[in-house]
Amino acid sequence: MKALHGGLAAIFLLVSPLTQASDLQEQLTSLFAQRLAGFSDEVVVNIRTPKNLLPACEQPALSVIGSAKLWGNLNVLANCAGAKRYLQVNVQATGNYVVAAQSVARGSVLQPGSVALKRGRLDQLPPRTMLDITQAQDAVSLRDLAPGQPVQLSMLRQAWRVKAGQRVQVVASGEGFSVNGEGQALNNAAVAQNARVRMASGQIVSGTVDSDGNILINL
């Protein structure tokens, strides 16, 4: 009987860490599924930390540390009532990303048919691959793109809403007042970017480009 009890105890000691690791993996998967909501609908988390270094409690407080990355190799802080463990995990995420739907020449303005969404592993894509297809609307390609190629944010720029030398309206506003004037843009700028303007008086002012091409200054 003692031998039987000893055998059961040994089995329990072997199974308990495995069960604990399984529960921790489920908690990590839930954490990253929430973190990646809107980007990925399929998340797999693999724990790279050895089992003997995992947190001792069943429900540690988990938080991602030291990285702005959403997937790939990441560090997670597990806090068990003040006892901290740092975990290494690998996060695999599947979702939609933007690819070139056809050949695009450098300097071309992207049209609706220029890009498309493709589903795949986001963690295996080049850095800063575009996930929101609306970001490509009316953008200008800074390089040649091949069909099926993932589109990185660094490959595009927004179309200029204001160009250097263009006559623009400047709207300066503050609490209870608004003043309009005309000037000449000194630099190219897209919507929401900063533009410098030389006014008729020779004064140079700076403001934000709106969707109508006006330069807005908040006083």
Rank of each mutant, 00 (worst) to 15 (best):
residue 70 L to C: 06
residue 34 Q to N: 15
residue 170 V to G: 12
residue 102 Q to C: 13
residue 149 Q to I: 06
residue 64 V to E: 10
residue 88 Q to F: 09
residue 11 I to A: 14
residue 194 N to Y: 03
residue 147 P to H: 11
residue 48 R to Y: 06
residue 76 V to I: 12
residue 192 A to T: 11
residue 186 L to F: 08
residue 206 S to E: 15
residue 194 N to E: 11
residue 141 S to Y: 02
residue 143 R to P: 00
residue 32 F to L: 14
residue 201 S to C: 02
residue 36 L to Y: 02
residue 65 I to V: 15
residue 204 I to F: 04
residue 104 V to M: 06
residue 101 A to T: 10
residue 141 S to K: 07
residue 140 V to N: 06
residue 105 A to H: 08
residue 141 S to W: 01
residue 186 L to V: 11
residue 200 A to G: 11
residue 85 R to E: 11
residue 94 T to Y: 02
residue 183 G to D: 12
residue 97 Y to N: 04
residue 166 Q to W: 00
residue 81 A to F: 05
residue 86 Y to G: 05
residue 83 A to T: 06
residue 121 R to E: 12
residue 216 L to D: 07
residue 19 T to I: 08
residue 132 D to F: 01
residue 133 I to L: 08
residue 189 A to R: 09
residue 123 D to V: 04
residue 125 L to S: 03
residue 113 G to Y: 10
residue 171 V to N: 13
residue 43 V to S: 05
residue 51 K to T: 08
residue 175 E to S: 07
residue 42 E to D: 15
residue 40 S to G: 11
residue 62 L to N: 15
residue 144 D to I: 01
residue 47 I to L: 13
residue 4 L to R: 12
residue 187 N to F: 01
residue 183 G to L: 10
residue 18 L to V: 11
residue 104 V to P: 01
residue 106 R to I: 01
residue 123 D to A: 09
residue 11 I to R: 14
residue 217 I to H: 03
residue 201 S to Y: 00
residue 174 G to S: 08
residue 94 T to R: 04
residue 173 S to C: 05
residue 76 V to P: 04
residue 170 V to C: 12
residue 219 L to V: 04
residue 23 D to M: 09
residue 112 P to I: 12
residue 159 A to E: 09
residue 202 G to R: 07
residue 154 S to Y: 03
residue 196 R to W: 15
residue 206 S to A: 15
residue 209 V to A: 07
residue 69 K to G: 12
residue 9 A to Q: 10
residue 128 R to T: 08
residue 181 G to R: 15
residue 48 R to N: 15
residue 172 A to N: 06
residue 166 Q to C: 00
residue 119 R to T: 10
residue 9 A to I: 08
residue 5 H to W: 07
residue 163 K to L: 03
residue 116 A to N: 03
residue 72 G to S: 12
residue 204 I to R: 06
residue 182 E to H: 09
residue 18 L to R: 11
residue 92 Q to C: 04
residue 139 A to F: 03
residue 17 P to H: 07
residue 139 A to P: 02
residue 153 L to T: 07
residue 7 G to Y: 03
residue 181 G to Q: 15
residue 79 N to G: 06
residue 174 G to Q: 06
residue 172 A to I: 03
residue 139 A to V: 01
residue 98 V to Q: 14
residue 166 Q to L: 00
residue 218 N to V: 12
residue 156 L to Y: 07
residue 161 R to V: 01
residue 174 G to F: 01
residue 218 N to Q: 13
residue 135 Q to S: 02
residue 115 V to W: 03
residue 55 P to G: 02
residue 154 S to D: 09
residue 159 A to N: 06
residue 195 A to E: 09
residue 136 A to D: 05
residue 141 S to D: 05
residue 182 E to G: 09
residue 25 Q to Y: 03
residue 46 N to G: 13
residue 84 K to M: 07
residue 70 L to F: 10
residue 153 L to D: 10
residue 21 A to K: 14
residue 59 Q to C: 00
residue 105 A to C: 02
residue 180 N to K: 13
residue 164 A to N: 04
residue 163 K to D: 00
residue 127 P to N: 03
residue 130 M to G: 10
residue 99 V to I: 14
residue 171 V to W: 13
residue 46 N to F: 04
residue 89 V to G: 12
residue 36 L to G: 07
residue 208 T to V: 13
residue 43 V to T: 14
residue 188 N to M: 07
residue 97 Y to C: 03
